[in-house]
Design a protein around this nucleic acid. Structure first.
Lengths: 206, 206
DNA sequence: CCTTCCCTAACAAGTGTTTGGTAGGTTAAC
DNA sequence: GTTAACCTACCAAACACTTGTTAGGGAAGG
């Protein structure tokens, strides 16, 4: 080895911009084709260098995936924790969580798409154990909010809470598969309409 | 080639049970690991034979995937067409489509999971062009029902129809990722609660 | 003997990854 | 102010391995 290359996740690398750019194109290809279907050579092509050169910046294909996913989850939980620490009422908490989620989709749509497709079968591997942990925290936050809302008579009590949680969770995150930044609706507008539908229903009230 | 093996999609093969059993295990592995991440040897292991032996029944890994997906879509559209031909009102049509969808998930949950994960990047290849066509028919059926419902004042007019369509579509189908047959809720019960939530909302009415 | 169904053994192509080298810029020594 | 050393970011070429697939053979049953 010639120089002293990457030291991942630390702070002050001299040129982290190249890393981030490479990760961005990797994320785009991963999201489009799936992680396993994506070859290192394809990523290199898209980024304008040769396959082996990627290993100057990263020490494996898997570590690229790792960095993409953990980076996204770190930012996501920063946002969520702010919301959860605000001590809002259940309905307002739900609204804030949904809005924050759509903002994250806006910023990390490729990472979200990858997370959706791959997290389930990655969570087994020790390296990606944080995916399962994140999933548990996620469920606690959302399901807890729903149950508090039911107890305070803000949400209906005649629905299965777990079922409701899954519907909420899934519909929010699958939006990453069709969302395009700069499209007809900003994330906040999507969140608003989504909340309106989920909270009040799509049927006309009598 | 030794004998006269498979003639796909035709009717009366002498022993199609073995085929279907092999396809079932293939579908399960595809759904769990993803198509590209799944090796032919893994499927063979799970089915209790060697990799090469699979090629007596199928002529490629891709044709297994093809048969799984097209088989599912054929059954799905048989159900949908029955509903659409019944001439129901928009709200009843929506209810019937949702219920039928959850029944299909109950019967083809692995195929649905595969469809969710892979259809997007498969639709390009000529062999899987029917995926894109099915997607178009799907949108026409659901979006049309929604728009008819808005016109007849059964559904709210202040929501973006395409957004509503995507929310409906996605939440219905991602259910395949967590649904387990023989679980707490039968497909019809899931459909009932889902429709209740989507039509009337989860908030308590004042 | 023929058909069905599978195994053994191999193939070529593609995979992630490593090694050694090098062009070009920056820094340090004299 | 030239020269030497060094670092960054890449390329070229190969590595060991896995992949989907094929060819030929064989056991079992009718």
């Amino acid at each position: 080895m010639t120089g002293v290359p990457n030291s991942k996740q630390t702070a002050a690398n001299p040129a982290p911009e190249r890393r981030r750019a490479l990760l961005a194109t990797a994320a785009e290809v991963f999201a489009a084709q799936g992680y396993d279907a994506t070859t290192v050579r394809r990523i290199a092509d898209e980024a304008g260098l040769l396959a082996g050169s990627l290993y100057y910046h990263f020490d494996s294909k898997e570590s690229m995936l790792d960095e993409i996913l953990s980076g996204f989850l770190d930012e996501l939980w920063a946002g969520y924790d702010t919301v959860l620490a605000a001590g809002l009422a259940p309905r307002e908490t739900l609204e804030a969580l949904v809005t924050e989620s759509f903002r994250e989709i806006d910023r990390h749509r490729f990472a979200v798409a990858i997370y959706q497709k791959e997290s389930h079968h990655l969570a087994d591997r020790p390296r990606f154990a944080y995916l399962a942990e994140s999933r548990r925290r996620f469920e606690r936050a959302w399901l807890g909010t729903l149950e508090r809302g039911v107890a305070q008579r803000a949400f209906r009590a005649d629905l299965d809470a777990r079922l409701t949680y899954r519907f909420l969770r899934d519909t929010v995150w699958v939006a990453a598969s069709w969302y395009r930044p700069g499209g007809a609706h900003a994330p906040e507008e999507i969140a608003r309409q989504y909340l309106s539908m989920v909270l009040d229903g799509i049927a006309v009230r009598e």
